[in-house]
Design a protein around this nucleic acid. Structure first.
Length: 848
RNA sequence: GCCGGGGUGGCGGAAUGGGUAGACGCUGGGGACUUAAAAUCCCCUGCCCGAAAGGGCGUGCGGGUUCAAUUCCCGCCCCCGGCACCA
């Protein structure tokens, strides 16, 4: 055989498998289905190491399950709408569509070079009208049910992108894409009412907990942020118009008697009315409103407030308490008004101290007595109620119930649940997205487009400048239409949908991707769904996964589906890291700008950061294509899977990839060396040391790869197996038979990780059936039986001897052998044994 | 600050229903082959004492439970990630 040359083998097998269509998933297969899904890529132009890692993990699993007898469903597609396409158009003048499809073409070729076993017949691109038509239809149905609605809302505005951002798209007060400081604006926007599903999204997390990483479940739980408490009405001392009371939400109704004032948000509808025309207060309200939420949430933000001069009545104590406008009260949470309990809430405590407001202790801790005069911080834990009228002596837990129940009886309160989760703002003032299918009619108002008129497609002739309003709004004719209701002239909605909408249901469309009569065939979806294993980066742990779960539940309630959770198991794979260089003057610099640890431009000594996330901004990116050209796809795959467990960060290292390359060449040589003498060997029978190694390897690799997803350990076990085979001497027919079984098993075990080299070797061993369709080997325990067992002997807790014994030796035999051992005897020093513990097959522990 | 996840050789990482710590790989060292080099094959490579045999120490730190602890319990320290006025 020739030397191992991945560059001739890999394209050959990729082409063979394509022709044989062996990765096509069939819905009518009698085999059990297994859906492997990876987070589909945005077609930015080139795949990066994160993609390679993500998809290499998925492909191993897909190949394993296929060999284990499943009908594996393993599709791929493109999350094709989004701002980069538009930005590229602005910069380079290319049309977003052309730019996107060019990128898809290039990236598809790159993925094919990696040898992933996708069913490409199901490929989708979300920017295709045949795709987004259906989410427009779902939008209409959501609109009909009030799940999609429009409202004037303070929104986050990125001045650079000229667009609205969801809360989730803001990182540290800046736009998640361009890093520009986000400001506030009031605009009419479209929302999806995800909050209606808050409870279900929360409690179904319990069901997912077995298959999802704990930290992702936790992040979702925190994001939804359910709080149980009560809404309480505080009657106004002097009604404002019809308004006779202010409602607050609190999680601590047990502290009601300690509420000595009230704080309301500057945005509260009554703020100005209560101010009663005070110019000072009006100015304060204006000032707070102008400050963006991001700044207000920042650390060290000074709590400020002004009294409105108005009062309300504490329904517990009956006292008149002052109403303040306070800058730390948020209009978006609860009712925009809070009862301030300075003794038991840190913010209220600080506020009270600053403005000299009374602090009244109504909860006493079990271990000490609080004194308002000397308290340095609020006591926020539970305790025993005091100064609370009829509730004195109750625990906080009892008090919460009883106070709420008491208020409910007189109609001044009720149990209530609030969520941190906000409705999903989907309006984007952008071109390259799915148009929201609604028109505005001067006489009929907001009118949904007729379903038969879908899809509402984007115009091709659009002018993209990156400035001002939405490109669709500036288009001379596109928005002019007629009202579906009255036929009169009307205007189209020019907002497009958030691209998270497309990624909320692509996994469903894969099941029936070419359906032009419906969003999908329900039977096809219910055959392949739910996704058995979803794989992707943690960066999508909250938003994408939450939205996808929401959308699935909506489709269920619209009777498109019979289930509500799309992803049974989730693997959050780690990032790819690489050393990078930091110059004190120029910040991140490219490696080729560094010489003798100094930046060439300025001569400053650079800091070498050994492990930074591989990213453009760190200037430490390694192009997968370059590495595939150098080492081949199999080596890349083995390296990425072997170097770290899938969930951990992976440090890219040229030395380590050399190691992977060496390993594959070593496998190749091992097979080449024995091929001629074992090829015609008969099937093995009976026990043999090589057979033992073979069946132990099968058991180990199956457990690590197929059951535990410890791919790094699985590859290590294959390497050990190879080392064992290198030691073997082949002399008899029985040796030859065992070696043939060993090598063929090796090829099968290696094939999910390194499919091309495995296929080539498999063929060399005379097999005609395509390797990816072969069955995964079965370990036969009776062949893996040990010939000797090693028993560790401990004397007084320390290992003093290792005995090689017959595996059938029982406890008395083991003990006798131990007491016969010279070094054991030495350590016993003739003392009598006080205790003897034997763990069969492992350890004998002797204590004197 | 709160919540999650972690700290194991020079490095990436193995080993947890408690039972031989450091598998496998990288780096480094040695040997074989070669005129030589590369490649390859084999061996060694946690720290300390010792010529060796052997012994001691060792999984972030300090305690505890146990015949036996990387694994379980208590108290700290540090790192990574998420959230951060949510009433």
């Amino acid at each position: 055989m020739d030397d191992y040359d991945p560059h001739t083998i890999e394209p050959k097998w990729q082409e063979t498998w394509r022709e044989q269509e062996i990765y096509r998933a069939r819905a009518d297969s009698p085999k059990p289905k297994y859906y492997v899904l990876e987070m589909f890529p945005y077609p930015s132009g080139r795949i990066h190491m994160g993609h390679v890692r993500n998809y290499s993990i998925g492909d191993v699993l897909a190949r394993l399950r296929r060999m284990q007898g499943y009908e594996v469903f393993y599709p791929m597609g493109w999350d094709a709408f989004g701002m980069p396409a538009e930005n590229a158009a602005i910069k380079a003048g290319a049309h977003p569509r052309a730019w996107t499809y060019d990128n898809i073409r290039a990236m598809r070729a790159q993925l094919k070079r990696m040898g992933y076993s996708y069913d490409w017949t199901r490929e989708i691109a979300t920017c295709h009208p045949g795709y987004y038509k259906w989410e427009q239809l779902v939008f209409l149905e959501m609109f009909e049910r009030g799940l999609a609605y429009r409202k004037l809302a303070p929104v986050n505005w990125c001045p650079r992108c000229g667009t609205v951002l969801a809360n989730e798209q803001i990182i540290d007060g800046s736009c998640w894409r361009c890093g520009t400081q986000v400001t506030q604006r009031e605009l009419e926007q479209w929302f999806l009412q995800i909050t209606r599903y808050a409870d279900e999204l929360l409690f179904e997390l319990d069901r997912l907990a077995g298959g999802w990483p704990a930290h992702v479940v936790k992040m979702q739980r925190d994001w939804i942020g359910r709080s149980e408490g009560a809404e309480i009405e505080f009657p106004l001392a002097d009604p404002v118009g019809d308004v006779r009371a202010l409602g607050v939400f609190t999680t601590r109704p047990d502290t009601l008697y300690g509420a000595t004032f009230m704080s309301i948000a500057a945005e509260h509808p009554l703020a100005e009315a209560l101010a009663g025309g005070s110019p000072e207060l009006a100015a304060f309200i204006k000032k707070v409103r102008a400050e963006d939420r991001i700044k207000r949430a920042r650390e060290g933000y000074e709590k400020e407030g002004l009294p409105t001069g108005a009062f309300c009545i504490n329904p517990g104590t009956g006292e008149k308490i002052p109403i303040f406008v306070a800058n730390f009260v948020l209009m978006e949470y609860g009712t925009g008004a809070i009862m301030a309990v300075p003794a038991h809430d840190q913010r209220d405590f600080e506020f009270a101290r600053k403005y000299g407001l009374p602090i009244r202790v109504v909860i006493q801790p079990p271990d000490r007595t609080l004194d308002p005069a000397t308290m340095e911080a609020a006591y926020i834990d539970d305790g025993i109620m005091v100064s609370s009228g009829p509730f004195d002596g109750l625990s906080s837990a009892e008090g919460k119930q009883k106070v709420t129940a008491h208020l409910a009886r007189s109609g001044r309160g009720r149990p209530s649940v609030h969520y941190r989760l906000r409705d999903w703002l989907i309006s984007r003032q952008r071109y390259w997205g799915a148009p929201i299918p609604v028109v505005y009619c001067p006489s009929d108002g907001i009118v949904p487009v007729r379903a038969g008129d879908l899809p509402i497609t984007l115009p091709d002739d659009v002018e993209l400048t990156g400035e001002g309003e939405s490109p669709l709004k500036r288009h001379p004719t596109w928005s002019h239409t007629t009202c579906p209701r009255c036929g009169g002239p009307a205007t189209r909605e020019t907002d497009t949908m958030d691209t998270f909408v497309e990624s909320s249901w692509y996994f469903l469309r894969y099941c029936d991707p070419r359906n032009d009569r419906a969003i999908f065939d329900r039977r096809a979806v219910e055959h392949f769904m739910p996704v058995d294993q979803y794989i992707g980066g943690v960066e999508h742990a909250i938003l994408h996964l939450l939205y996808a779960r929401f959308w699935t539940k909506v489709l269920r309630d619209l009777h498109y589906l019979g289930f509500g959770e799309p992803f049974t198991r989730l693997l959050a794979q780690g990032m790819v890291h690489h050393p990078s260089y930091f110059c004190p003057v120029h910040e991140w610099v490219y490696p080729n700008e560094v010489e003798d640890q100094k930046h060439k431009d300025c001569g400053q000594v650079v800091r070498i950061m050994p492990s930074e996330v591989m990213s453009k901004s760190h200037k430490n990116v390694i192009d997968p294509d370059v590495m595939v050209a150098k080492y081949g796809a199999d080596t890349m795959r083995v390296f990425m899977l072997f170097t770290s467990p899938p969930e951990a960060a992976l440090d890219w290292s040229e030395e380590a990839i050399e190691g992977a390359s060496r390993f594959l060449a070593r496998v190749w040589r091992l097979c080449a060396q024995h091929l001629a003498q074992v090829k015609g060997a008969p099937a093995p029978s009976g026990v043999h040391p090589l057979r033992r190694a073979t069946h132990l390897a099968i058991a180990a690799v199956t457990r690590e790869a197929a059951e535990r997803f410890h791919f790094n350990k699985a590859i290590a076990d294959i390497m050990s197996f190879v080392n064992t085979l290198y030691q073997a001497r082949i002399e008899t027919d029985s040796d030859r038979a065992a070696m043939r079984e060993a090598l063929e098993t090796l090829i099968l075990l290696l094939s999910p990780f390194a499919p091309h080299i495995s296929a080539e070797l498999w063929q060399a061993f005379g097999h005609a059936q395509p390797l990816p369709l072969e069955s995964w080997p079965q370990a036969q325990p009776e062949l893996a039986r040990r010939e000797r067992m090693t028993i560790v002997v401990q004397v007084n807790g320390k290992v003093r001897a290792r005995l090689e014994l017959d595996p059938d030796a029982d406890e008395p035999a083991v003990q006798a052998a131990a007491l016969d051992d010279a070094s054991v005897r030495k350590w016993l020093e003739g003392r009598p044994l006080r205790s003897v513990k034997y763990v069969p097959g492992r350890i004998l522990s002797l204590v004197t």
